[in-house]
Amino acid sequence: MTIPVLEVQQLAVEVAGQPLLYPLDLSIEAGEVVGLVGESGSGKTMTSLAIFQLLDASLTQHGSIRLNGEELTTMSDKALRQRRGNELAMIMQNPMTAFSPLYTIGYQFIELIRQHSACTKKQATQRACAALADVQLQAPEKLLTLYPFELSGGMLQRVMIAFAAVLRPKLIIADEPTTALDLYNQKEVLKHLEHIRVTHQTAILLISHDLSVIAEMADRVLVMEKGHVVEATDVVSLFQAPQHPYTQHLIKARLTVPALEEGL
């Protein structure tokens, strides 16, 4: 049996004895997409920050998080920094605030690549251009000279995917990657994620409140409500026969136009 890329056991978070996240188990194999769904405030982002070991110091964390068999919770900061970027990467919800407004895309991209791998500036530039071309961005050399605010939200989100994928991480955590985008860009972003998954067998933890995004991409799904995982199942069963009342409520609350979806 192979080791899962990510194995989380009994992960819990509390602040001053007050539980925020109740014990949660989660594992993702290579090439697999696990969806995390729930309303705002249900603990989705807290779970992803805990996996990244980026929780605020005032929060206490319990349980075990293993990436490729290595325990992250006891790892030194230096070792963690080496894993982040190389082995696990994050795609955030709001592309407008995820970049530094003070530096060009190129400066930030080359810094990221050289921080994590030994290469010259020229090689790093080439890799950055290749990664941007991968997400179908036109004229990557020109793009590197621009500042984040000169790009649209959809373009920036694709740049963020290029940042996340360039070092070929084993795991990508995508936290609401499509929420800030319009329909057209949503679909484009999901296609690029799928492309990365297929070509590099990347494991993906996909966090979204949008059940359509989950329906399109996930293999298995965890449903969260107020810090609890209330249902964990494969994606088809979740939509065909939701067990927990909360899941049923979520599925019912969706905006649906049956006439529009006929024959889709």
């Binding site: 329909l183 057209y184 949503q186 679909k187 799928e194 399109e216 088809v236 939509f239 979806e261 889709l264």
Partner: peptide, 28 residues
């Protein structure tokens, strides 16, 4: 809605599936 049925309406092709059985990006 009737107009979206004919041809590949650009907005309609951006619509995401309601159900995993109708996926348009990934196959199961």
């Amino acid at each position: 809605i009737a107009s979206t049925k004919s041809a590949a309406h650009h907005l309609k092709t951006s619509l995401l599936a309601e159900h995993p059985m109708k996926r348009t990006i990934r196959s199961l």
